[in-house]
Every structure is written in structure tokens, then in C-alpha cells.
Write a protein that binds this DNA or RNA. Sequence first.
DNA 1: ATGAGTGCAAAAAGTTTGCACCGCT
DNA 2: AGCGGTGCAAACTTTTTGCACTCAT
Lengths: 169, 169
Amino acid sequence: MGDVVSELSALEVAVSPVDKFTEYLATQGMRLTMERRIIVEEVFSHHEHFDADQLVDRLSHRNDSRRVSRSTVYRVLTLLEESGLLRKVARSAGKDLFEHDYGYPQHDHLICHECGSLTEFRNEEISDILEKVAGEHGFRMDGHRLEVYGLCADCRRPPKRRHRKLDMV
Amino acid sequence: MGDVVSELSALEVAVSPVDKFTEYLATQGMRLTMERRIIVEEVFSHHEHFDADQLVDRLSHRNDSRRVSRSTVYRVLTLLEESGLLRKVARSAGKDLFEHDYGYPQHDHLICHECGSLTEFRNEEISDILEKVAGEHGFRMDGHRLEVYGLCADCRRPPKRRHRKLDMV
DNA sequence: ATGAGTGCAAAAAGTTTGCACCGCT
DNA sequence: AGCGGTGCAAACTTTTTGCACTCAT
């Protein structure tokens, strides 16, 4: 009753990540605790990819009331994945990378071997093709992960200029 | 001189995995040792996906002359990846999965959430689209990983029959 | 002989878990 | 009161590494 967000445009995200998470928790007989709220707010306050350790750094070394332990961060990341708010995108230096999967359009990544940069791109055709392929195999698709590897524009440039610079020292 | 394999059809794999690996090792100033040969032969004697531990199991618990230590298996897996003979395909239960990337056509996977099965498929259109997308970003693609998630044909079937069977016990 | 390569055991790195205590409902 | 949740520390898993010895060229 008196739900403010219900009046937002259907094109926008009508429910906040915290609310969405609360919904999910309820279906599992779980509660939205202060720690869970803090983690979700922290996670959705940035749009960049992150790994568990980066999040732990931001949350478990503080002295205020928003400190959350390492174990809880890991436990909540698992829940956020299960609830569809986050998804793992890639593995970098042995760590899983996460990104927002709620309120953010489907996209894929170009990953540079050289500098490790992730560039997002979107392409409708791919999803269409995948639906078709899945259908042919009797497979019901509910998502995908596509990583394109190679050299990004910056790293393609031959390092000749750098040599010259070094030689001048 | 007198290279037997050079007379094979260009459509077939003209060079064995061991030879291909030897070539790569040479470019790195490395040698093909007996251990490396054993590992490559073992890896290419099966076509299924595998993780490091499965390979270690097959190679480091034997008493004959084909035993190889765990460390060496890990070290050689890295080399096989660098040489382009193997590639990592997915992560399952916290372990990296490998598959042949030499003498085996480019393909992608349908991965079932329920039973974990990997089904391979091939689709030309996808590579074309990726080349195009990469080009638009000034990115030079040299490969990709595409995993489609969902439910496989078997797991889509509702488990009603199973219940009936169980009830009859 | 010389430097690459191996095996072993220890270490690292990332993640999970057992347990006692805490707090919401 | 009861059950879910947290923090801590210890455990675990997978992978990497230091070191002394070995082997191929």
C-alpha cells in the first residue's frame, strides 16, 4: 500500500536492488539483515566489475557500524548470485569477477590479453542465434557468458615509440 | 627431410600434438622431456573435458615409468595452454576445465545448471558477428569463449515420473 | 659441464565451514 | 524461545614455488 516506486516508468528499474534482494530472501525464508543491506548497497553503488577481495577490502577494514566480516561478504555474494542480482563474468588472476545483473542490460566482453582490460559490447543478433541453437538441442537457455579474447586498440599499437623514448634517457 | 606427415592431406591434422608441442617448446628454448611427452600423449588420448586433478590422478599414482608428479602436470598444462594445444573452457566446482584446442574445430558449449552436462555446438555466424564487433572496437580478436546456460533436454522433463517410481517402493 | 626440468614438500591464494554468540520476530 | 545470521579462526582446495637433485645435449 502507498508504494512509491510503483509509479515509476516501466522502462526504469522499478525496484531497488535492496528491495529485489529482500524479495528473494523472503522466498528462501531468510531475512534482510543490516550486513546484507550494507553489502548490497556497496555493491550497487559502483558499476565496475569487482572481485570478492576488493569488496572485502571496502567493507571489512572499517571501524564504523558498516563493517562486515570476510565470511559474510562471501556468503552474501553467493546469495546475490542466486538471486540474480549479480553474475560472475570472468576469471582474472585466479579470482572470479562479478558484475551487476540486475537493472543492467545484457552485454558481453572484449578481454585484452595484454592489459587485461574488459570492454563491454551489446549485440542483439547473438542472443537470437543462441536461442535458435539452444532450441535445436532441446535446451532451454536462461543466459550466457561470452568473452572475446585478443588485443585491444591500445595494445595493438607496436611499442616502437616506447623504445625510442627509453633510448633517449 | 623425409618428413612422413608432410604427405598427409591438408584437411587432416598434419602434425601430431607431440610434434606441435615440440615446435612450440623449441621457440621457447625448452625441451621435450619424457614427462612432457607422457602428459601430451595422455591428454590427447581422450577427447573429453578434464581438470588438472583428473589428469594428475591418471599420471601421478602409477608405479611404472610413466609416472609424472603433480607439479609437473600443472607446469605442463600451463605450457600446453600457451602453445595453443589446450584451452580452458569453463569452471566447474571451483576447478578449471580444459579441452583440446589443436586438431579440433572451434565450438562452444551448452551447459546445464541441473546436471552440469556440457554439450558442444558449432555456429559459423557467431564468429562472423564477433569479428565485426571486434573490428568496431579496434580490437584484434584471436579467440572467444561462449557458454550458454540453461536446462538440457533431459533435465527439462518434469520429475513427475520419478516421484511415481519412488512412491511405488 | 651446464642449464633446463623434475619431484617433493611447503607455501600461497581464494574460499568455505564449525562453532559460539547475537539478535530479530 | 527459536532460528537465522555473524564473526572468528581454522580448515580446505586448488595451484604455485623454492630447492636440491637429475638429465639431456
